[in-house]
Nucleic acid binder design. Sequence first.
DNA 1: TGACTAACGTTCATGTCACTAACGTTCGTT
DNA 2: AACGAACGTTAGTGACATGAACGTTAGTCA
Lengths: 164, 164
Amino acid sequence: MTRAEAADMPDDGEFRTPERLRRRASRLLSQVAAQTDRLITDGLARADARKWHYAALASLEEHGPASQATLSRRTGVYRSDMVGVLNELSERGLVERALDPGDRRRNVITITTQGRRHLHRLDKVLDDLHEELLAPLRPAERDQFVRLLTRLLDHHTQQAPPPP
Amino acid sequence: MTRAEAADMPDDGEFRTPERLRRRASRLLSQVAAQTDRLITDGLARADARKWHYAALASLEEHGPASQATLSRRTGVYRSDMVGVLNELSERGLVERALDPGDRRRNVITITTQGRRHLHRLDKVLDDLHEELLAPLRPAERDQFVRLLTRLLDHHTQQAPPPP
DNA sequence: TGACTAACGTTCATGTCACTAACGTTCGTT
DNA sequence: AACGAACGTTAGTGACATGAACGTTAGTCA
């Protein structure tokens, strides 16, 4: 039996999530986010990439070459993890790591032509994945959804940027 | 220099997240969910509880005594993890674990009076936390938000219930 | 100038989460 | 009587978010 067609037996709830939980915005958020994460992670994996790779490449194309620390701050990827991400990207020729002649502590990371091409391919992949993600919502609702999320994020982010 | 007072230099974005990322529903979701998770986890910790504890107790009160496997299905807490959750809850006298006389594979978990009291306390704590979470939204918007999330979740959940 | 502080890249370690694998026990069905 | 499946349990995996510490380098100030 599949729980869905349980029209005959009263289904006292072998699979029924308590209303208390079902209604909570926090739980809805975490569930939807988890589903989304799997969708995106799998989709990117099929395109031979990962979220962090995309984030780094996107940052490099939008704002130009940067140090690893800056990339880390811009993408939210932790600086410890950025190391590995850039290792992989540079191994594959998507970015180049060079010593900053003006500051020998820094590496200057630059996106390559190949990296740009990869990024644009990933942009399309993500467009498709988001189409799938937001399929049940009409365009106006999608906008609303994004707006609400943005407001929530802004509200809960504003009081904790790195201190001066 | 501190980025905040960069009114003079054009702030080419030492901390600026790429638009590509900022706009994506997937990223917004994951960020907001992460913030939310911390809010809830911390809040519950202050009340000496954890999400899974709440989920188990809520399920027990709403649907009555159940086996661990059933609890796991109802709450989404993985059955491997349910073991530890119930250990902790029963150590604290919030639930009781008894062998099911009718099926010696099963444990029957029952919520205690103390557990009920704890649960009701947590309900209040969660109400407050959600008030904080959704603070920037007006009541109608909160409803909208929950509705949109629910539709997304339903859509992405319906095609993968446990197989017959 | 020399000493101190802070940022950088890096490695290693920690904790949580979702999930898989495997095990022995028990049940239901054939 | 035998087999497959469900149960509770333990142990382990991989992704993710962090923290600690280290050597190197820059910038600041006494």
